[in-house]
């Protein structure tokens, strides 16, 4: 474990807490893409299939359970909770996210570290996570002004994988045989997708103005 990866995991956890706070405090999921939340639930379920078979550390197991439980809880909230469900705008959240699932799974069938069930689902979860934010970014562009908590949620979610890139550079430099090409390349693509969001987020922070993504 290094500082970059710990900071990355904490930033990821923070993004989830901010989203839970937004939904709990406002009893609303306006501006939040249910499809991105569903994609993240699939990412965690596919990536942590080894939750009960491979024990890495208490921290690792604990965080996996937190990520799986929180992502399922958020999807449940948006789909089932009467107050929150009413605020979900399905006319804005129209990204065909099942195409992302299909494309990621197809790619995982061809590009993986080993042709085993766990490795293919792991690669699938890595590719799917890289594009999981797309429905959310499209929704933000459509819904005009973005409330603070939703903006902070997306910012932290994008920042965490950026910190992981620093972690991979650090591990590549310090560990003799460390190579994680699938995770690295996917992580760079994932972080790059946030580029324009980061730019407008920085502008809104600098000008102390409302975050607004151009349509």
């Amino acid at each position: 474990m290094n500082i970059f990866r710990l900071a990355g995991d904490m930033t990821h956890l923070l993004s989830i807490l901010v989203l839970l706070l937004k939904i709990y405090a406002t009893k609303s999921c306006s501006g939040v893409s249910r499809k991105t939340q569903e994609l993240y639930a699939i990412v965690f379920l596919a990536r942590y299939l080894d939750l009960f078979t491979d024990f890495i550390s208490v921290y690792n197991t604990f965080m996996k359970i937190v990520f799986i439980a929180s992502s399922l809880a958020i999807v449940w909230c948006i789909r089932v909770h009467p107050m929150v469900k009413r605020s979900y705008d399905k006319d804005l959240d129209t990204f065909r996210h099942y195409l992302l699932v299909a494309a990621s799974f197809l790619l995982a069938l061809f590009l993986h570290e080993k042709f085993t069930f766990l490795e293919i689902f792991w690669a699938f979860s890595i590719y799917l996570e890289a594009v999981a934010i797309l429905p959310q970014l499209v929704l933000l562009q459509r819904s005009g002004n973005v409330d603070n908590l939703t903006g902070q949620y997306v910012f932290f979610l994008g920042a965490y994988r950026g910190l992981y890139i620093l972690n991979w550079i650090y591990r590549y430099l310090t560990e003799p045989r460390f190579t994680r090409w699938i995770a690295c390349v996917s992580g760079v693509v994932q972080t790059a997708l946030y580029a324009d969001f980061f730019y407008y987020y920085f502008i809104s922070w600098k000008n102390n103005s409302k975050l607004k993504l151009p349509a």
Partner: peptide, 10 residues
């Protein structure tokens, strides 16, 4: 050899 490395990251 890559796959031998434990998936120790989240």
């Amino acid at each position: 050899p890559e796959a031998e490395q434990a998936k120790d990251e989240l």
